[in-house]
Design a protein around this nucleic acid. Structure first.
Length: 534
RNA sequence: GGGCCGUUAGCUCAACUGGUAGAGCAGGGGACUCUUAAUCCCAAGGUUGCAGGUUCGAGUCCUGCACGGCCCUCCA
């Protein structure tokens, strides 16, 4: 199981205590890829902890970065004047005291807490304003030329020369628009340029200021290296866009080694998380991390990430069979974890062991789970649609005993997921839906089946529409006509559902109302009512 | 051009540091003979993309190739 393999290698290649770090810029709603990052780091931290090492799991919100784009979910006019300011200095448009950064950081934090990730969070703005980053800032200013040279070397000088420090403009409060002109060991001279970047306009101010305690920030790649040095980070993964050769991770690594003199954290390059084949990035809209929790419950979200090898892309498409399949795999992993999955060959023994570990890392809480019933998802989805079925009784019968609290909790979650799935994602053949018009499939009915439908219509016209009555009538008629149960009931299902199976026929028809039932039976039979015109 | 990933049964995917290629679904056969038939049982289905190599042994390791996806630009 890949988490265990990574943990093993980390123990060989880096020494304890382990600081595991991950970070994200709260510039909009977090997308699912960021969620993969947190879950991955959380699982690795858990694995290291279980080996008895001291582990610190940190999660940074890069809220001192400039606002460089406006997410589509937010009114553009409210933020246009703030373009280029640090995210932590941009007020949230809906009145309360929070900043733009705090809003999105808080939102994402509640998502990753829900899937069981418990890092200690920090904000880069605090690192700057508290002075924690001042030594790194001084180093970067003193050795700016070296850092620029490193960037050019690593990236193959594809990019324009860029100073590793950005000053916060005293006149307009922007940080994305300034350039450093000089550094005398005490103060930086800088200019806030109108056309430095396309997404924000600097005010033109030219000044001198002390860069410390929040007066300036490190450029992204240097800042990354500085964080490793400051916290002594031993493990930090990143999406493959950072990890490509000559990319930001390579630059940060060189800066870490040559400028700050620290070891590069154990890298974990992980693949993207796609939803329905499209990349979900906050800047492009689409389904975010929060929305994923409205598709899958937290246990399944975490399982989805943990079971996939970290170097392969996850492409989750909630339509189709994906959710029932995911549930089946989750149940298999749970069975392996609880020792309920038999293994015969050595290969199977290993498979079961891996599955059990996967479930272990997917489990939300640090405390081990107690066994719980796992009625198959597709079955639950069927039961919740049957008017006469009480799901809890069904599960009790399958289990062969009364349900525990854990059982009931699990079942409740499944029922809720099943209803949501049926409503939003399930392919139509999973839905038991009474057709509004006579199904075309009725053309395939035999003469005897048509006869049965016609006689059933006649019978029900004068009888109580009770489940037992309907049920008994079908059985009587099938005997009269020499039909099998499958042929008889199949005809009824086809007439209403367009397919040859469904919930108990009596219960189904009883919920539909006599007039409709009789009319539909006659239409499907292709016969005129006995003794009536029309 | 560089990098990463993928290619295994009709479909969706498994298979630890190399050790008899598995599962779900679909399809086939059968069972329960008044319906929780979306259940249960059985069988079948694969020269693991192609060509080489290493090995007693390769889906797994190495080399090359083909096809597909993504990343390498700004920003993070």
């Amino acid at each position: 199981m890949w988490v265990d393999v990574l943990v093993e290698r980390i123990c060989e290649e880096r020494s304890a205590p382990y600081v595991v770090n991950d970070a994200w810029t709260p510039s909009g709603p977090a997308h699912v890829g960021s969620l993969r990052g947190v879950i991955l780091h959380d699982a690795v931290a858990r694995g290291l902890r279980e080996r008895g090492y001291p582990v610190e799991f940190l999660y940074g919100f890069d809220d001192f970065d400039p606002l460089d784009g406006i997410p589509p979910s937010v009114p553009e006019e409210a933020y246009r004047p703030h373009m280029g300011k640090p995210l932590c200095d941009v007020p949230w448009h809906e009145g309360d005291a929070r900043s733009f950064a705090d809003h999105f950081a808080g939102e994402f934090e509640s998502v990753f807490r829900a899937v069981g990730c418990e890092p200690q969070t920090y904000r880069t703005s605090h690192l700057y304003r508290s002075g924690a980053f001042d030594p790194a800032l001084r180093t970067a200013l003193d050795r700016a030329a070296e850092i620029v040279a490193i960037e050019r070397e690593i990236t193959g000088s594809r990019r324009a020369e860029r100073h590793p420090v950005q000053v916060l403009c005293e006149a307009c409060g922007r940080i994305g628009t300034t350039v450093v002109l000089g550094w005398d060991g005490q103060q930086v001279t800088y200019e806030c340029r109108p056309y430095k970047v396309t997404w924000a306009q600097g005010c033109g101010h030219r000044g001198r200021r002390v860069p410390f305690r929040g007066g300036a920030k490190l450029a992204y790649r240097t800042e990354w290296a500085a964080k490793w040095a400051l916290f002594g980070v031993k493990v930090e993964g990143a999406g493959k866009d950072h990890m490509t050769r000559g990319g930001s991770h390579d630059t940060a690594s060189a800066v870490a080694r040559r400028i700050f003199g620290v070891e590069v954290p154990f890298p974990i390059p992980y693949e993207f998380f796609l939803l329905g084949g499209k990349k979900m990035a906050s800047s492009r809209g689409g389904v975010g991390a929060r929305e994923l929790l409205q598709v899958l419950r937290p246990e399944l979200v975490r399982f989805l990430v943990v079971r996939a090898y970290y170097r392969t892309a996850i492409d989750f498409d909630p339509s189709g069979d994906a959710i029932p399949r995911l549930y089946d795999e989750y149940d298999r992993a749970a069975a392996a974890y609880f020792g309920q999955l038999p293994a015969r060959t050595p290969g199977e023994v290993q498979d079961v062991r891996d599955l059990a570990r996967t479930f272990h890392y997917a489990w939300l809480k640090p405390t081990p789970p107690q066994p719980f019933v796992r009625p198959r998802f597709s079955k639950v989805a069927f039961w919740v649609q049957m008017p006469h079925v009480r799901v809890e009784e069904q599960v009790e019968r399958e289990k062969g005993g009364p349900l525990t609290d854990a059982d009931r909790e699990e079942l409740g979650a499944r029922v809720e997921d099943a209803r949501r799935w049926l409503e939003k994602w399930a392919p139509s053949h999973y839905r038991i839906a009474v057709r509004e018009a006579v199904p075309a499939e009725c053309a395939d009915l035999t003469a005897a089946q048509r006869e049965l439908l016609a006689r059933l219509a006649d019978h029900l016209e004068g009888a109580a529409l009770e489940p037992e009555v309907v049920q008994a009538a079908i059985h009587t008629l099938k005997a009269e006509l020499g039909l099998s149960a499958k042929e008889a009931f199949g005809a009824v299902y086809v007439a209403f559902l367009g397919k040859d199976s469904g919930p108990q026929a009596g219960a189904l028809l009883a919920t539909l109302g006599r007039e409709f039932v009789v009319r539909r039976l006659r239409e499907a039979s292709g016969r005129q009512p006995v003794g009536h015109g029309v």
